[in-house]
């Protein structure tokens, strides 16, 4: 199994996809941070001032927005094998297909962790100088920074494997990516924005990821989310259930 996981990591490192995705992730987070900095302390924008702990919380949690990209990365990790038919060689080398899917999930977990570390490093490089420059105090142990960092790591890692499981289920690259983006930006936004629907929305992956971050920027929203551990369990649950369904259905299909 270790060999298979190494092979999966090699598949990623020998093509360009991973750094395109990493750049996209950092770009998205950079835009978010620029927005937070630009509108900090702005009365109309409703954002706290740069030197407040509230702003630090907000800025540190920007990294979680990268989850859409690691999810796409996860989808592509498996659908590109069908697209380029490398799945043939993969299954010829490892005919027990469940082992391939498991190795991909483990590799995805590792990649998600590495992405989270890169994201946190990038955030630190932007946030720390900004706060110091604004005359605030930098503390990596207060303002819930450790909890937020942990939440970022967990949500990116779990979203990568969620993407892999979704990819295994749909097999088609375009369908997988469009489905993931539409779900995250359209369906979940609706459920998480409308209070009456939040009862359902908190059980969605996006709601679970929000609970992992559990920051108190908008007091009151809290009670509508799951506890952080519950959010993690929900995300793992989705990934595992999707992977099991995929394993019993699409992964078994004839490769012709």
């Amino acid at each position: 199994m270790i060999a298979l996981v190494r092979a999966e990591l090699l598949k990623l490192s020998t093509t360009r996809l991973w750094w395109v995705m990493l750049l996209s992730t950092l770009l998205l987070i950079g835009v978010n941070l620029a927005f937070f900095i630009g509108f900090a302390g702005n009365a109309q924008g409703g954002l706290p001032a740069l030197d407040t702990p509230e702003w630090a919380q907000l800025a540190w949690s920007a990294g979680a927005s990268g989850r859409i990209f690691v999810m796409i990365l996860g989808v592509v990790m498996i659908t590109s094998e069908y697209r380029y038919q490398t799945i043939t060689g993969t299954f010829l080398t490892t005919p027990r297909r469940g082992r391939v899917i498991t190795a991909k999930l483990v590799a995805g977990l590792i990649v998600g962790l590495l992405f989270a570390l890169a994201v946190l490093l990038f955030t630190a490089l932007v946030v720390i100088p900004t706060v110091l420059f604004a005359g605030g105090e930098v503390s990596l142990t207060e303002a819930r920074v450790p909890a937020i960092a942990l939440g970022t790591v967990a949500s990116l890692a779990l979203y990568t494997i969620l993407g892999i499981a979704v990819g295994a289920l749909v097999r088609n690259q375009i369908a997988g990516i469009v489905g993931a983006v539409a779900w995250a930006y359209v369906i979940e936004s609706i459920f998480l924005a409308i209070p009456a629907l939040q009862v359902v929305g908190k059980w969605f992956p996006g709601g679970a990821a929000q609970s992992l971050m559990s920051i108190d920027v908008t007091p009151g929203a809290r009670s509508d989310l799951l506890p952080a551990w519950g959010g993690a369990a929900v995300l793992v649950g989705y990934a595992v259930v999707f992977a099991i369904i995929a394993n019993a259905t699409t992964v078994r299909r004839d490769i012709t």
């Binding site: 298979l4 190494r6 092979a7 020998t14 093509t15 060689g89 080398t93 490892t94």
Partner: peptide
């Protein structure tokens, strides 16, 4: 057609070796 166009020939074989 069973190759990823962005991967080199050597890398293609290398990862098969690792997996096997």
């Amino acid at each position: 057609t069973n190759f990823h166009p962005g991967r080199t020939a050597h890398n293609h074989l290398r990862l098969l070796c690792v997996a096997a």
